[in-house]
Simulated scan of single mutants.
Amino acid sequence: MRIAIVTDAWSPQINGVVSTLVATRQCLRNAGHEVEVVSAAGMKTFACPTYPDIRLACNPYRKVASILENLEPDCIHIATEGPIGLAARRHCLKHGLAFTSSYHTRFPEYVRARSLIPMTLTYRWLKWFHGPSKAVMVPTPGILRSLEKRGFRHLVLWGRGVDTGLFRPAQVDQTGIARPLYLYVGRIAVEKNVEDFLRLDLPGSKWVIGDGPMREELQRRYPGVRFLGARNNDELVPYYNCADVFVFPSRTDTFGLVMAEAMACGTPVAAYPVDGPLDVVSHGRSGVLDHDLERACLAARQLCRKAVRLHALQYSWSAATQQFLANLHLARTAQGGEAAQSSLA
């Protein structure tokens, strides 16, 4: 099949959405499919409000429409709800083209954390955006149930994977590290709730990998924490292996791919018992989920790293991509049924 993946999130951004799309594209190509990514590359962009490191396309409709017309894809997947995604949605509706979409992040909660906009308004807008989608792909059963309660339709699962060949236990130089070592990897932004981790009174040391709008402020306020900046995937492995516990303080993530990466290296997770960790972490085996994050961190240190690694092996990009393909076929079948009904009318 010829597949178009439309996204506002793409390289050089470093986040879970980009990692997911890169891995999915590779798996699809390995299976013989032709995959083209439609992103803001080569377009005029502007800085995302409150997040200047993320560039968004400015008035991209003509460019996106031209790309899709020339590509003539069998399937169109709209991965994000930004300007590029909106342009593709408009093009598909204008020309009667079926498309699938995905819900990667709790956008309403993020907007509420950064502004005074009520979540009800943002969820209403998201329902409008995803309403025409033949299949709205979500990463976990918990998120699916949550969106169902809010009236979203055509919800299907699209899980996540981890490269267990890259993210694996390995010996690393651990000299000079004050033990135990607690590690956070991810964006340093208000919606990630990083300060819940930083303010904990834990023995040993805390390291933070990532960048974002709150990094400078938190670095000033917590001088005892080591901030290491952003790292690419292949650079993360030694840090995961150094850590005694991977701390995931977010209450709003839909999956939390970094948790799967840490577990694949044998590093247990400490997190809150909320959507995301509840679906990804096996409590008492690969991590500890507790409303008291400090208690979770201390208890996670006692877990067997081999058992943590075994739990992570269930997360395969191959299996996740098979789900993605099944969802695309579902959309094509739905489109074919509509076309048949139209011809009989």
Rank of each mutant, 00 (worst) to 15 (best):
Y61I: 10
A264M: 01
L298E: 09
V281D: 00
P49I: 11
H33I: 05
Q219L: 12
A41T: 15
N193E: 13
D196E: 15
V280Y: 04
G16L: 02
V225L: 06
Q323G: 12
Y103V: 09
L325H: 06
D211R: 10
L325Q: 12
T321G: 09
R226C: 12
A264Y: 00
D163P: 04
P249E: 08
P52T: 10
R62P: 07
R153C: 13
A307C: 14
Q341E: 15
L126N: 00
I117M: 10
P141W: 03
R221M: 14
A135F: 05
H154P: 04
W10F: 12
P118G: 04
T80I: 06
G32V: 03
R332K: 10
G276N: 11
C92N: 04
H91D: 07
H329N: 14
C265D: 01
F46P: 00
R187W: 04
I76K: 09
Q322Y: 12
Y182W: 13
P277W: 06
L303M: 10
A40T: 08
L198D: 01
L298Y: 07
L198H: 05
I209D: 00
A230L: 07
Y315I: 01
Q171S: 14
A9I: 09
H311Q: 11
V38M: 02
R150D: 12
E338F: 09
D234Y: 10
T267F: 05
R187M: 07
A79K: 07
R231I: 05
E72Q: 15
N232M: 15
G151W: 07
G151Q: 06
A300T: 08
V172C: 04
R25D: 12
G266Y: 01
D173W: 09
A230V: 11
M263F: 02
G276C: 11
R114T: 15
G287D: 00
P118V: 06
G210L: 01
L278I: 13
M43T: 10
A178G: 07
G210Q: 00
D244R: 03
H130R: 08
H291N: 15
L236H: 06
G161D: 03
L298Q: 11
K63P: 05
R168Q: 13
F107G: 00
L144D: 11
T321N: 07
N232A: 15
P12F: 00
S286Y: 01
K206A: 05
W158H: 14
L147D: 05
L202E: 00
M137W: 06
P180M: 05
I5W: 03
S146F: 15
A345K: 14
R220E: 14
C297S: 04
L303Y: 08
P73V: 11
L166R: 12
D279V: 09
R295G: 06
M214V: 12
M259F: 08
L181N: 01
A262D: 00
I209K: 00
P132T: 10
V280I: 13
S133R: 04
C48H: 14
H283G: 05
